[in-house]
């Protein structure tokens, strides 16, 4: 009987000690902020398009890290982003919810534009230039192709044009594409 008690006491004492240590550690080394959200945000393409159902890339990143939102909701990022997210978060890759969208730019039909400035307000990255009652134009290098300016335009003068590949940004194709499927 005494050996039982000794065993119980020894183990109990050790457990008390380690429990206290763990309790202390959990209070003392609590991680402030959320570095994983930053990392997710880093991967997202920053189009701020909201096609994921969240009002921008940062909110989507927060939703992924905090609410466990799905990682396949970003059409502009496509499969690349999904796979990077899967790698980062150690989740299973899942097929995209929507079809991947080719990169495109907003183009304002300058003949139709009435200069209402509604699109300027909608643009999340200030890529549209113009003033009230004057024709607007899109700064091509800054447009993220988010399509947020399409809806507010009262005269439907904005269209999305896919970005054509030209010689300067052309790169060699995947050689496996030509591999004869034997």
């Amino acid at each position: 009987m005494s050996s039982m008690l000794i065993a119980a006491l020894v183990i109990g004492g050790m457990a008390t000690l380690f429990g206290a240590l763990l309790g202390y550690a959990s209070v003392h080394y609590k991680v402030e902020g959320d570095p994983i959200t930053d990392k997710i945000d880093q991967i997202l393409p920053q189009t701020q398009c909201g096609q994921c159902g969240y009002p921008g890339c940062r909110p989507y990143a927060e939703a992924i890290s905090n609410e466990g939102a799905a990682i396949n909701l970003c059409p502009p990022g496509g499969e690349t982003v999904m796979v990077s997210l899967a790698d980062l978060l150690d989740r299973e890759p899942v097929a995209l919810e929507q079809e991947e969208r080719p990169p495109s730019l907003a183009l304002i039909d300058e003949k139709t534009c009435i200069g209402c400035t509604l699109c300027i307000q909608a643009c999340p990255v200030d890529a549209i230039l113009g003033a009230a009652k004057l024709m607007h134009t899109v700064i091509a290098t800054e447009c993220t192709g988010c399509e947020l300016c399409l809806a507010p335009c009262p005269v439907d003068c904005i269209t999305m044009e896919p970005i054509p590949t030209d010689i300067t940004d052309w790169s060699w194709p995947d050689p496996d594409m030509f591999k004869v499927a034997a």
Binding site: A15, F18, L22, G23, S26
Partner: peptide, 12 residues
């Protein structure tokens, strides 16, 4: 069980 001691408790 609080989260910091859950693993030791499970193991026990």
């Amino acid at each position: 069980i609080t989260s910091e001691i859950r693993i030791p408790v499970f193991v026990m």
